[in-house]
Design a protein around this nucleic acid. Sequence first.
RNA 1: GCCCGAGUAGCUCAGGGGAUAGAGCAACUGCCUCCUAAGCAGUAGGUCGCAGGUUCGAUUCCUGCCUCGGGCGCCA
Length: 588
Amino acid sequence: MTLRSELVDLFGSAFAEIGLDRSFGDVVPSQRPDLGQFQCNGAMSAAREAKRAPRDIAADVVAIVDLDPRVAGLEIAGPGFINIVVTDQSLAAATSSLAGDDRLGVTPADPLDHWILDYGGPNVAKELHVGHLRTAIIGESFKRTLRFSGARVTGDVHLGDWGVQMGQLLVEVRNEQPDLIYFDEDFEGPYPDESPVSMDDLQRLYPTSSAKMKSEPAYAAAARLATVDLQAGRPGYRALWQHFRDVSVEAIRGVYDDLDVDFDVWLGESSVHDRIGPMVERLESAGVAEPSDGAIVVHVSGDEEEHQIPPLMLVKSDGGYAYATTDLATVEERVEDLEGTGAIYFVDARQSLHFEQVFRAARKGGIAPESFALEHAPNGTVNGPDGTPLRTRDGDLPLLRDLLADIESIAIASMDAKGLASDYSAEERAQIAWLVGMAAVKFGDLSNHRTSSYVFDLERFSSFEGKTGPYLLYVAVRIASLLKKADEMGLEPGPILAPAHDAERALLLKISEFADAVERAIALRAPNHVAEYCYELSGAFNRFYEQCHILSESDASLRASWLAVAGLTRRVVVTSLDLLGISVPERM
RNA sequence: GCCCGAGUAGCUCAGGGGAUAGAGCAACUGCCUCCUAAGCAGUAGGUCGCAGGUUCGAUUCCUGCCUCGGGCGCCA
């Protein structure tokens, strides 16, 4: 319950009292802070339905609401805006109640909701590259935010570990090491525990193989055959494949750990393999899947639909499964095994058609009941200075591992330029630099809307000035430093008093908006609302800090109140940053 | 050709049917004997791609057009 939602109730009741719909009583933060703290625009919306002049309706509402002790002032302006000022006492009371709430006013989620979030999608044998960055940052943030609201959430990395690229690697390894026991069809095991290939080997073999796939038809055929054999369960292939997966997961997990991106389950395409056969059979016997040009497809457009979309490829003409097949089986896994109530895919916008096909097929085939939400939350790309997806000089997608190294060194340079933490130990400096770099990149990403592509400019993101991650860390650290100093002076926070300064009022109002920002981020699947809010809150605090000198304040109860406000501000800033996946150092 | 997305200040980007469209950077002007100036206050900068429509009210919703990006059955 926030101050705003209290006002929504109050105004909703007032509209109901004069015979109009409660929903007209929506109250929002004022767009004209010079005229009020909140505003209600419902009188204008209600005018048509009520067949009354909007200012008359507003006058009736004001007459009712004016009696409430929380309301200090109401003005009807222009065509029928109601500008609202609340009492300083109610502002203080609302702030205190927020401080006592673990969720800081956020409306609790339905405890029966269980969301499966898909924000990984790395491929075995390929290191994480910049293309995985947005999805990881946005998904991690969304997972934390949803979880903060009390929802049950399971993050799945959904490894790409079962496609033709696996067959390619098998063929490529066989070409290079033909005598390996894994290729001996008479061998009955057990196979060695030690992997014959390292992650570096896979990284080297995969591009080689991809090139041959295009230029050598016989090679491509062999790779597809190996894929089919693997999927059919040939023991040597399975054993070798397990090594591919293990060495890849180790490398992939290391980078996600560095990014502080975490998955609850490490499932993948291969984990649904056993579902595919029965699923295909069921879809065929139900008449949902049909033969087409030697393949088996699911038509996902109705005949009467004006704009047809292509059918989903269920079984390729060579007998192999496409990624739509595994994605479809994964929906089934998420419904049946994970017992989710919905799944959200944080995946590049370029996959939109694919998900449209999969979701339609899942409905058509009865794989996901209507009650199970299926959503693609598309994200934009990370672009270079030229506005096209970021590439290295060689034209490759930069590896996240390399990007992280750049981030760290730029963070250190940025700290050096400011003379920051110059007297700290080398170890602490390195720790701070890492957190600064992470804050820079994550805030740089999350301050943009999920769907927009943005220009990756490390220099700009790493600046300590302006709307950046490092600036937000600074605010959190600055408050911590203030509180520490107060503690050393023997000063304790106390009850929050009615605000007496404009900057203080503005800060309390901004604190109360946290829940709105979080709820908006959840509803829109858009963490940038939390990022934007965190920045606004930081500005509100800095203005307060500038105008209200806390430690030198002589009125002890006022000083104690301000310390409490500062402490709460820090908590909200740190919480907001945590929801963005950003960790704050103790000091800087 | 069809589908999806984008077009807002010099640059990078926010923006929830509402009043005078915002922020950061860059430019310019002030403010540190005072809790971290990594800050604060201010000036300047806009036909919100174009044209219609719906509405009391449109940057926001709808239609058309222009420009750019992406996608469109056996890669994932």
